[in-house]
Design a protein around this nucleic acid. Structure first.
Lengths: 133, 133
DNA sequence: GCATGGAGCGGGTATATACCCGCGGTTCGA
DNA sequence: TCGAACCGCGGGTATATACCCGCTCCATGC
């Protein structure tokens, strides 16, 4: 069984490659696709706790916590406290809103490029397959 | 544009999830899918230098070097020197061959599960799409 | 009102991954 | 033959990611 048919390895390769497309497009803003996506989610759900955000984005809580801390250092996200003193409530800082606004067209560009390259039918297939895995 | 249509994020999610399937299956052997796949490649191409291996698996050389070092610590891979004193030549150690043998059916199991779940046609589509990205 | 169990987080540890820099070995031209 | 260009690697740094442990805070039963 040739190694280059391993679904996992192919997925990881594709994931790295496609991530780099988005990363390059967003590079002028100083954020990568993971950070931009997390920022979008925080914006969509704010104010939200680390635990809830982790559930939403399907990542480990500690991962989201560390990633959020990077965004905080960048001044894009504010980490405050909810009524429950244990909860770290996340909101998007003004600078973060600017990044969201500037990044949207860049993100759209990559997204459109990919869909143009694949075509509508295969784009649909891709979304369906990835969801089915 | 809803965030959950981002091709990149969907790919990354799928990649993490599918990786965990293989990781769980290989867990009894103490290796993850990345390590198992790298071991297979080293076995297929041995003896091979870090640089050449990195090209083959489409990863950064330093990444391959660090991953190989982990395999060496585990006693699965031997890192020697070629004629060129600069080259680190990789070969599979006896213990590594044992892992390859024991891991093969476990890997096959996950691979078959996925293909059974998707069906032949969609499996083909997936391979095609991932290669096209 | 207090003890106990549970929830939310931070941080430790480990791998995965990439980029960059510096060291040392090779090679080739002058 | 000897220096310059070049190549292969290791290691530093940074993010991504997960699991586990321990701390703190909260809520509930007694």
């Amino acid at each position: 069984m040739p190694n280059d048919t391993c679904h996992c390895i192919l997925l990881r390769k594709a994931s790295r490659k496609v991530s780099s497309y988005y990363d390059e497009a967003l590079a002028p803003l100083g954020v990568n696709i993971g950070q931009f996506s997390l920022l979008r989610n925080i914006n969509r759900l704010a104010p939200i706790s680390l635990t809830d955000l982790a559930v939403q984005v399907e990542l480990d809580r500690s991962t989201v916590g560390r990633n959020a801390k990077v965004l905080e250092r960048m001044g894009l996200v504010a980490i405050g406290h909810g009524e429950d003193q244990r909860e770290a409530m996340l909101t998007v800082a003004p600078q973060g809103h600017a990044i969201l606004k500037q990044g949207a067209p860049l993100w759209d560009g990559v997204q459109d490029d990919i869909e143009a390259r694949l075509g509508a039918e295969k784009t649909r297939q891709l979304q369906e397959l990835l969801a089915a895995l």
